[in-house]
């Protein structure tokens, strides 16, 4: 565990807590893509099946359980508890265009052709693009609440910090996982446009609003 990974994990944790707090306090899921959140629930479920097969540490296990649990709570909030506030008209990204190619790629490019390993690979690839329905929704409505922007910034930062973690691990531990690194780069690149808007607008007290 190095500092980049720890801060990355904390950033990921913070993103999830910000999102849950936003929904709970405002009693609303307005501006949140239910499709992205379903994809994240699929990501965590398929990645953390190793909870049943291997134990790494208390930290590792509790984070995995937290991520899986909160992803289902989030989906429940959007599609059940706060459903009247869910903006489905603007959440129109076609997720099959992500799931099908990502599933195919996981079958073709993986470390080992076994069920758990293919599901792990699938989750890594899917995570890299899972935010697209959310970014699509922001661009479609042309705006994002500040709290939603904070959520997206924390969520995007997490994988960017993992990139630093992988550079560190490559030099000091000889660890290198090409699948995770390539997917992590893709994931971080997708956030770049948003990072720019966040730094130039949200940090100066304005909310993100795009020209029509």
């Amino acid at each position: 565990m190095n500092i980049f990974r720890l801060v990355g994990d904390m950033s990921h944790l913070l993103a999830i807590i910000i999102l849950l707090m936003k929904m709970w306090k405002s009693r609303s899921v307005a501006g949140i893509s239910g499709k992205s959140q379903i994809l994240f629930a699929i990501v965590f479920t398929t990645r953390y099946l190793d909870l049943f097969t291997s134990f790494v540490s208390i930290y590792n296990t509790s984070m995995k359980v937290f991520f899986i649990g909160t992803s289902y709570v989030t989906v429940y909030f959007i599609y059940q508890h706060f459903k009247p506030t869910y903006d489905s008209n603007h959440d129109t990204f076609r997720v099959e265009f992500l799931i099908v190619p990502v599933g195919g790629l996981a079958f073709l490019v993986n470390h080992e052709f076994s069920l758990l390993e293919i599901l792990w690979t699938f989750s890594i690839y899917l995570e890299s693009v899972a935010i697209l329905p959310q970014l699509f929704m922001v661009s479609k409505t042309g705006e994002a609440e500040s709290i939603t922007s904070h959520y997206l910034f924390a969520l995007g930062s997490y994988r960017a910090l993992y990139l630093l973690n992988w550079i560190y691990r490559y030099y000091f531990e000889g660890f290198f996982d090409l699948i995770a690194v390539v997917a992590g780069c893709v994931q971080t690149i997708l956030y770049c446009d948003f990072f720019y808007l966040y730094i130039t607008k949200v940090l100066k007290g304005k909310k993100i609003s795009l020209p029509a």
Binding site: D50, T53, S54, M63, E112, L116, D177
Partner: peptide, 10 residues
């Protein structure tokens, strides 16, 4: 080299 135990990351 790689095996599933390497997935100690989240």
């Amino acid at each position: 080299d790689h095996d599933h135990d390497d997935h100690d990351e989240l």
